[in-house]
Design a protein around this nucleic acid. Structure first.
Lengths: 115, 115
DNA sequence: ATTACATACCTTGACAGGCGAAGTATCTTG
DNA sequence: CAAGATACTTCGCCTGTCAAGGTATGTAAT
């Protein structure tokens, strides 16, 4: 897990929302999905994941409900709201903007990489 | 300045180092360069900038010296070290990695944007 | 002269997100 | 019955950002 926290910081919420855009899910599963999607390069820390859920719920971007598992650990399922979809879209726009800015500032040929 | 702090967080040091890769400079100038390079879309807050200098100096990535201005406000010039160049290169690699991961997770067709 | 503004730097204190660590509970497998 | 996977939670620390305030010099306008 070479990606440091600060590099990813601020994107966590958008990442979770994007995951919930595909289908309702629960914390553990979302994290495993992230791990799989990134070829084991990245996953959220549990504390980070669950505190993010609280924020997103508080903001009205997701709704939560306990699943009715028969046996096995209980799961808290999350569903994205209309507001959440908007926020996800917004987050994606911000990401694109930030990406462009940082790419420009790092110029991609700096730091010894000639052309 | 629509780009939120958290999105950029953690890239500040690499951005400063990349700027110093071009030529020695001082705080105010570096920030103006950033502003210009990004078409006024982004600039560092002064407190952020100067605390970053302290960290970079502490880490041995840059060295500082007072300029000998005749008249006008004094300037503290910064110069990147060999260690700093390595760190910049490393920061660039991390950025590329983070970019790939986040792009994958946001998938660029999520959030309502159907290809 | 005084006000205003640009240049140029610095520090303090608060805030917010990430996360290590520890805990709870259930089920499966050896 | 111990170990490990699943699954969620909370506490408290750490760190980077930044609002707010300060210092100092030079120039242009009033």
């Amino acid at each position: 897990m070479s990606i440091t926290a600060d590099i990813i910081r601020g994107h966590t919420e958008t990442i979770i929302l994007a995951s919930l855009m595909e289908h309702d899910s629960y914390g553990y599963q979302i994290n495993k999905d992230i791990l799989r999607k990134t070829d084991n390069r990245y996953e959220l820390k549990e504390a980070t994941l669950y505190t993010a859920f609280r924020r997103l719920e508080q903001a009205g971007y997701i709704t939560a409900s306990w699943g009715d598992e028969k046996g096995g650990a209980r799961r808290r399922y999350y569903s994205i709201t209309q507001e959440g979809r908007k926020a996800c879209e917004q987050g994606l726009l911000e990401w694109k903007e930030a990406k462009a800015v940082i790419d420009k500032l790092l110029e991609l040929d700096q730091c010894g990489e000639k052309s």
